[in-house]
Design a protein around this nucleic acid. Structure first.
Lengths: 237, 237
DNA sequence: ATTTCAAAAATAATGTACAATTTGGGTTGC
DNA sequence: GCAACCCAAATTGTACATTATTTTTGAAAT
């Protein structure tokens, strides 16, 4: 299932057609967003190039791209640092998505075909079958589910923004488990969403998506908070 | 009036404290967004480094940053191109701003102080005094007006997104004149907005801002369309 | 004579190495 | 104690090598 969607194609930063080795950019980005590199950590090109086994230029260019994307902050002549990906950052992203995704969904309701709805149902089937057994696989399916809705939107800029935010959130939540109540809510909200689309109820669909995004954000932030407190407790002992 | 706001400080990509010469990044970005470089134009590092009088690395790094920001698209081993800044792109941005800015404004109404309102009024005074005589200066004042509202928002990500969009739109509209009816609307809407904030009417303020953004977008797109048609007519003769 | 295909040359991107500034810290001399 | 200075570390800029892609060219086949 090679999802060669307009978004992923547009966002594909390397031209990964035949499984090229991941670029420095991809490695570095993953290490930042997954938390392997501490918030505010200094990013010295010499260290990084040694670590990733390349020369300095690929690292320098990766840093610049990540700066453009906002994952890295730089001061002139004083180098780069990891932008902290903290609870505030997640909250900020979620707030934007709460505005964006309902709007995208509302439009989708107007153009959705019978085929689309069947595709959504098929994906939801697979998600429920899997039942969160494989986190990685679940994330993939869940992303595909929402992507189907946003992917075709005429507003490419909005769709790309969604995709970028999605990737950040996905990388963060990979660190934490999904609570049972959240699992329940995800499945239920997906079903409700499909139903609203089928009924051509754009407002209802938008409202469900808003709840869905909000809930997902709350869950992530809660998990982050718990992890922080655990970490503090462990450090204190 | 050195507007050293959190946003501009955060967005300041070079650490421009004492009027350093503009970086390759800034020059290139301006040339893209102002239309000096054609949409989809190829961006060869050798050409650009010759043009800007530097070696290749600064150009390469600038391109990567611009790629991260979405102004440039790249294919592996096939170089960079200017992302077309066309009517669709403006429409996409405006649609996002129509969602974003009202939300930011709604929050501002809740925290605005008497001092804030006076500051807004003072700026509006100066805008009306100037009466669009100096386009550059008007843009500066208008930006400052809206910046006062968005700048302090706790959602840094949203504020930065607004700022980025604002810069793009500013650069585009610099190419075109402002119609008389649009001038009227701008002044009137600003006054209405101040009034709504004073009355603590968040919903009304949000609605006005939505209109304001929408109107600004319509105006730019109209101007772009006219320019295109004029260009086509001129080429046909 | 025209088309087709392949190989080679040119063009341009990507990676490596190194030189030159800038910054921050520490030490010495007053 | 403090200021000037120097040194180490890191960023930024330049030059060059390598690799990938595109274009050209020339010979064979239709």
């Amino acid at each position: 299932m090679t999802t060669e969607s307009p978004i992923t194609a547009g966002m594909d930063t390397t031209g990964n057609e035949q499984e090229q080795p991941p670029s420095v950019y991809e490695l570095l980005r993953e290490d930042i967003v997954s938390g392997a590199l501490e918030p505010n950590a200094r990013l010295k090109v010499a260290d990084l190039s040694k670590f990733y086994g390349t020369s300095t230029n690929p690292v320098r260019e990766a840093l610049q791209q990540l700066r453009g994307e906002g994952f890295v902050v730089m001061e002139a002549n004083r180098g780069a640092r990891v932008r902290p990906i903290d609870e505030d950052f997640v909250r900020d992203i979620i707030e934007i998505e709460v505005l964006l995704e309902p709007a995208l969904t509302r439009w989708f309701v107007g153009v959705a075909t019978h085929v689309d709805i069947e595709a959504l149902e098929a994906m939801q089937e697979r998600i429920e079958e899997l039942d969160f057994a494989d986190a990685r696989q679940h994330a993939r399916l869940d992303t595909a589910f929402h992507q189907l809705i946003y992917d075709r939107h005429y507003n490419r800029h909005a769709a790309e923004l969604w995709w970028k935010h999605r990737e950040i959130l996905r990388a963060i939540s990979r660190r934490y488990p999904t609570s049972l109540s959240r699992r329940q809510a995800v499945l239920s909200e997906h079903r409700q969403l499909i139903e609203a689309i089928r009924n051509q109820d754009a407002e209802e669909a938008a409202a469900i998506v808003a709840r869905h995004v909000q809930g997902s954000g709350h869950h992530i932030i809660e998990q982050m908070g718990m992890a922080n407190r655990d970490g503090a407790r462990r450090r204190a002992s």
